[in-house]
Simulated scan of single mutants.
Amino acid sequence: MAEDELYAGAEPLTGQVRVGERRNWLEAGLADAAVLEADLATLELSTSQIKAILRERQQTQAQLAEITYVLEQELWDDDDNYDEPADAWESPFGKRRTVKQRFFDRLAGRRFVYSDVTEHEVRVPLFLLAAPEPAGCSATFSQDVMAGRALAWNVTLFGSGLGGSSSFRVTSTWKFQASAGDSKQVFLPVTVTVATVRVMVGERVVTTTRQVVASDATPAKQPGLTLLRPGVQEPAGEVICEYPLAGDTTGAIATYGATYARTSSGRVELGAEAFGVGATLSADVSCDQAIALDLELRGGHDYSLHRLRSGQGMAWSVARER
């Protein structure tokens, strides 16, 4: 479904965006096995070659973990007097660079030739605040708990076709609410480059692919907020809490506090319609802290509060009065 069919306008939110680490396709692949496997398939390597390189990646990560452990122990044991060895390449820092470069050299010697270069803006969903449909229901962020804090997320974008990755830290105000039946999406606008790429080894074309470049993605200066159109619902995941109010036939409003706990990141796919066949952009989004909510629910219904199946946020299922 196109974005203009999902959203009913948008507005900026008070907040900030900080750019973190940017990685080319080799660095992104070393950090994430699934990303590396997809990129190796793009290079049209054989199954046996891909498996061998993935094994080598695993071994490289194990070596890096061992070096990092030694470095942390040395810094911890003698934080004020740590001396870099005279031979910089014998230091933990030098060894780490050597191990990484050895892995990168395994896939070096390729160059990219670009054509049909365009730019596209996509919306990275950060958090969905939703209220159930019965009149009088609402969902807000708890003023008592959230005062002095900001909503915060860590975001990593992954391109396709050897497009690398970028990471961002996003903060925003929590001073908005969802009324009955509303779903409000906090999002980060990001501009990415999309191109047709010929992968060359020497003068030979190895493959031609459609590339979405995440390594140079440009985020907006602040996040945005949009209202999903009526009837648009994100798929619900696991149940967080249940509120059995079907027996309250008065229809009175009951007030509850709820906590959306900090969770591991969930990957979401973005903007496939804009990029064309075989090109994707995905994002890992994680909440930086638990989020406190105030809920108002009308009696006469049983309510279930869910996490989203994909991404961060909330969804509702409602059973009518019996």
Rank of each mutant, 00 (worst) to 15 (best):
D39V: 03
L40C: 09
L40F: 07
A41E: 14
T42G: 02
L43K: 10
E44S: 14
E44G: 13
L45P: 03
S46A: 11
T47Q: 15
T47L: 15
S48P: 00
S48Y: 04
Q49Y: 08
I50Q: 14
I50D: 09
K51I: 07
A52C: 04
A52Y: 00
I53P: 07
I53T: 11
L54E: 10
L54F: 04
E56Q: 12
E56S: 07
R57V: 05
R57G: 02
R57M: 03
R57F: 02
Q58G: 11
Q59S: 05
Q59I: 06
Q61R: 13
Q61W: 02
Q61A: 00
A62G: 06
Q63P: 01
L64Y: 01
L64D: 01
L64F: 00
A65M: 03
A65I: 02
E66F: 10
E66D: 15
E66A: 15
E66T: 13
I67C: 06
I67V: 10
T68K: 12
L71K: 11
L71C: 09
L71S: 06
L71Q: 13
L71A: 13
Q73G: 08
E74F: 04
L75R: 13
W76I: 05
W76P: 03
D77H: 13
D77W: 08
D80T: 09
N81Q: 13
N81G: 11
N81C: 09
Y82A: 12
D83L: 14
D83A: 12
D83E: 15
D83V: 12
E84W: 10
P85K: 05
P85Y: 07
A86Y: 14
A86I: 11
A86G: 15
A86N: 11
D87N: 14
E90P: 04
S91H: 11
S91Y: 08
S91R: 10
S91K: 11
S91C: 12
P92S: 12
P92L: 14
P92D: 12
F93P: 03
F93V: 05
G94V: 05
K95Y: 10
K95L: 15
R96S: 14
R96I: 01
R96N: 09
R96H: 05
R97C: 02
R97P: 00
T98C: 01
T98R: 08
V99P: 03
V99S: 06
V99C: 04
K100H: 01
Q101D: 03
Q101E: 06
R102S: 00
F103R: 08
D105G: 08
R106Y: 02
A108E: 13
G109L: 09
G109M: 06
R110W: 12
R111E: 00
R111P: 00
F112Q: 04
V113S: 07
V113C: 01
Y114Q: 14
Y114S: 11
Y114P: 04
S115R: 15
S115N: 07
S115I: 07
S115G: 11
D116H: 05
D116W: 01
V117Q: 10
T118F: 02
T118A: 10
E119H: 05
E119A: 08
